[in-house]
Design a protein around this nucleic acid. Structure first.
Lengths: 136, 136
DNA sequence: TTGTACTGTAATATTTTTAATTACAGAATG
DNA sequence: CATTCTGTAATTAAAAATATTACAGTACAA
């Protein structure tokens, strides 16, 4: 769902934020997270599309933050990564001959969107900078 | 993660709540959700352990709510079903030689717990009864 | 101007997770 | 005592998440 990718993106952004604007390579980042560099590049690609990082190709290339850590909210990271509400999309195909079955997906989806808004509000309380300050 | 199971549990409870205390069989419930009856029995088993339903074995057996729908919060359903925070457990095994890698799992877990509390607070605003009233 | 060290991305394979199925013992009813 | 349920374990199948391989393209630097 969203999980692993959120963790990975936050990890990447934390590394970038704590590296004084230096360009970090996907290989180096992958070494810190301990995952495959291709996955890192995929996440960087996504973060780039969402305006959170920029990257430079070629020798001595790598990635850096697109804006100061204090201007990045964790809710933005979540939005960049999320594909569906945390509780998921109601995806069963219930029996349409049943009053409950016929309507449940709609009601669940409504509920899931509400929950997601609460979650975004919570994540919006923390900036990347504040998160990074926890690392001592 | 938690997703499919939460949907299924809410569906089950909605059926029970709208059935006037009648005992519903797992087969019947499975027909409304359109999933395998064994999965329904597994979820019922879990809901029973959490005091939300009671069931009766043998012929003409089935399940019913353990208490009135107005006394069941959706947060209770979520707690009955959840195995880990919505955003997951930080489960990578990052590089301990890296300042960020060494600490990130702890900080992510802290964050995920906070988020989960916000989510529970949100779900705690809705009773099963209120949810059922949406079905017309 | 060419070797080297990167990124970007597609395609494939592997692993993990989730859901479905099969199987059967035990309980309650009529 | 046959029938219709539940409860649960074990197995299989399907789906999703991750990892790997492969390689074209870009930039630097000697």
């Amino acid at each position: 769902m969203n999980n692993g990718r959120f963790s990975i993106s936050v990890h990447i952004l934390t590394l970038l934020a704590t590296s004084q604007g230096e360009l970090l390579s996907s290989e180096w980042i992958a070494g810190s997270i301990n995952i495959n560099p291709v996955l890192v590049r995929k996440e960087l690609s996504n973060l780039r599309e969402h305006g959170l990082v920029i990257s430079k190709e070629g020798k001595n290339g790598g990635a850096q933050l697109a804006k100061p850590a204090r201007d990045i909210l964790l809710s933005e990271v979540y939005e960049a990564v999320k594909q569906s509400p945390v509780l998921g999309v109601a995806k069963n195909t219930p029996n349409p001959d049943c009053l409950v079955g016929r309507q449940i997906n709609q009601h669940l989806d409504d509920l899931y969107e509400e929950v997601d808004r609460a979650l975004l509000a919570k994540l919006g309380q923390t900036t990347l900078e504040a998160f990074c300050k926890k690392f001592v």
